[in-house]
């Protein structure tokens, strides 16, 4: 066998390359470039197949399904959370809308109540005012009637006073009371 047997290579302590006095070792291997040393190929391929087979089995049966499940669960969770957030937002929007409507309704109702109250009060005031006015009118007409009768009465008194005064004046001037008929005629003449 021309190749040096790798089984007889020095222990791992001789691992370093730049070791003075290690020349004979380097020379011993100068004929073969390790990566092209065919004597180890079968062994390497067998270990490669075993190691890579084990790795493939682990990845295929355990690791990748699990990572996929984790990623899937996360995306599901995210979507569910987003959906929930969306639903809650819609709910909040609806609540806001309901509040707005309720507020508008209440405002309208309040306006209506204010209007009716105002109208009722106005009507009441109107009737009261009218009643008062009517009462005042009657009082006024009564007062006017009283004034008129009083005036007429006073006017009638004026005639008798004037007649008495004229009788007294004439009596003083002539010493004789005038004839009541003449007095009445004279009074009638001055009255117009």
């Amino acid at each position: 066998m021309a190749q040096p047997n790798p089984l007889t290579t020095p222990p791992p302590g001789a691992d370093t390359q730049v070791v003075p006095g290690h020349v004979e070792h380097a020379e011993a291997h100068s004929g073969a470039f390790p990566p092209f040393e065919t004597s180890g190929f079968l062994s390497q391929l067998i270990w490669l197949a075993l190691a890579f087979g084990l790795l493939y089995y682990l990845m295929d049966k355990v690791a990748l399904p699990r990572i996929q499940a984790i990623l899937h669960a996360r995306s599901e969770r995210l979507r569910a959370d987003l959906d929930q957030a969306q639903a809650m937002k819609a709910e909040a929007d609806a609540a806001g809308l309901a509040y707005e409507t309720a507020l508008r309704d209440a405002q309208g109702k309040a306006r209506d109540i204010a209007q009716t109250t105002r109208n009722e009060l106005a009507a009441e005031a109107e009737t009261k005012r009218k009643a008062l006015e009517a009462e005042l009118n009657t009082k006024l007409s009564t007062a006017e009637a009283t004034i008129r009768t009083r005036t007429e009465a006073a006017m009638g008194n004026v005639r008798s006073i004037a007649g008495e005064a004229a009788t007294a004046i004439v009596e003083r001037l002539t010493g004789q009371a005038p004839d009541p008929a003449t007095l009445n005629r004279a009074l009638d003449a001055t009255a117009h």
Binding site: Q17, V18, G21, H22, V23, H25, A26, F33, P34
Partner: peptide
């Protein structure tokens, strides 16, 4: 004497 053996 320092030898280089980058193949080792």
């Amino acid at each position: 004497a320092v030898t280089i053996d980058p193949i080792h």
